[in-house]
């Protein structure tokens, strides 16, 4: 005498209460604005007024201009350069913290790396601006030993210092995490087989930590690709990056649809880069584990 199968309450007020806030907020204020951004790239500006429409004019206009492609290429190159620089500069430090530093030193390092991540990047960029200026601390010190003054602002060097300030802590953290998860027996075994420390690092440690190292570089790329402060205030804004194009089009040009074209292009690029990197990190056929 089995009773009929009961259906469990499908809509549960309790569950809905906890699931709803993020769903509502992020749909209304994250997803919707992004959709508006995409649709706005097809709008027109008539008599200085933004008018909803569906034309490809903005896309044509941007994609046929040399300065757009120059900016795109420049931004891409800069971000790539920073990804490589950050990875190369960070690696010895991450390696040291992961394998040689004491646990207490490692904890302090983590603290020092996480804190800047949540403190004003703007103020740090400003600080570099005075340190690197012609009369700044660095050039004064160089002057004492009879060097300089060097031009360290309003060029690629200045921009890179800013980018590295932005992404270095995160790159070290991700690398450190990846290296900490490398099986130490593997390294011990390599040493045991007569593999020198440098060779072990390149043939054992780096392949073993590959996923994390690629992710770290990818995050450096993503952060730099979208950054406005470093190229504008430390790099001098010439040639402009994509981010500078957006700000110019929005703040002074007042041409939001064109800015949207730039923004959508950036988002598509970032998604492509992210997936390429994820594929390189995880999906490489025959890759070492």
């Amino acid at each position: 005498m089995a009773t009929p199968k009961r259906s469990r309450r499908l809509i549960d007020g309790f569950a809905a209460f906890w699931a709803a806030p993020a769903l509502i907020w992020q749909t209304a204020f994250f997803l919707a604005p992004l959709l508006v951004l995409i649709s706005m790239s097809f709008w027109v500006v008539r008599n200085y007024r933004l008018t909803p429409d569906f034309v490809l004019k903005n896309w044509e206009r941007m994609f046929t201009r040399d300065y757009f492609w120059a900016a795109y290429l420049h931004t891409f190159e800069l971000a790539l350069l920073v990804a490589v620089l950050a990875s190369v500069i960070a690696f010895p430090a991450s390696h040291y913290l992961a394998f040689k530093a004491s646990p207490a030193a490692r904890r302090w390092a983590m603290f020092l790396l996480i804190t800047p991540f949540f403190t004003s990047y703007l103020v740090r960029a400003y600080s570099w601006k005075i340190i690197l200026s012609t009369e700044g601390v660095l050039n004064v010190v160089f002057g004492w030993v009879g060097l300089g003054p060097f031009e360290m602002l309003n060029n690629t060097f200045g921009a890179c210092v800013g980018y590295l300030t932005l992404c270095m802590p995160l790159v070290i953290l991700i690398q450190l995490f990846a290296l900490s998860n490398v099986n130490r027996d593997l390294i011990g075994a390599a040493h045991n087989l007569g593999c020198g420390p440098l060779k072990t690092t390149f043939t054992v440690t780096i392949p073993a930590a590959r996923v994390g190292l690629i992710l770290a570089a990818t995050f450096a790329f993503i952060l730099s690709f979208g950054d406005y402060v470093s190229p504008a205030y430390l790099g001098g804004g010439k040639p402009p990056t994509m981010s500078i194009l957006i700000v110019d089009q929005t703040k002074s040009g007042n041409h939001w649809p064109r800015a949207s074209v730039v923004a959508v292009t950036m988002v598509v690029t970032l998604i492509t880069v992210l997936f390429t990197a994820l594929f390189a990190a995880y999906g490489k056929p025959g890759g070492k584990k």
Binding site: A2, T3, P4, K5, R6, R8
Partner: peptide
């Protein structure tokens, strides 16, 4: 957990759900 079928009774009260 709730039964997919059948009933649980406490004394003569159905407490299945």
């Amino acid at each position: 957990e709730f039964p997919s079928d059948g009933a649980i009774r406490l004394w003569d009260r159905d407490i299945t759900d």
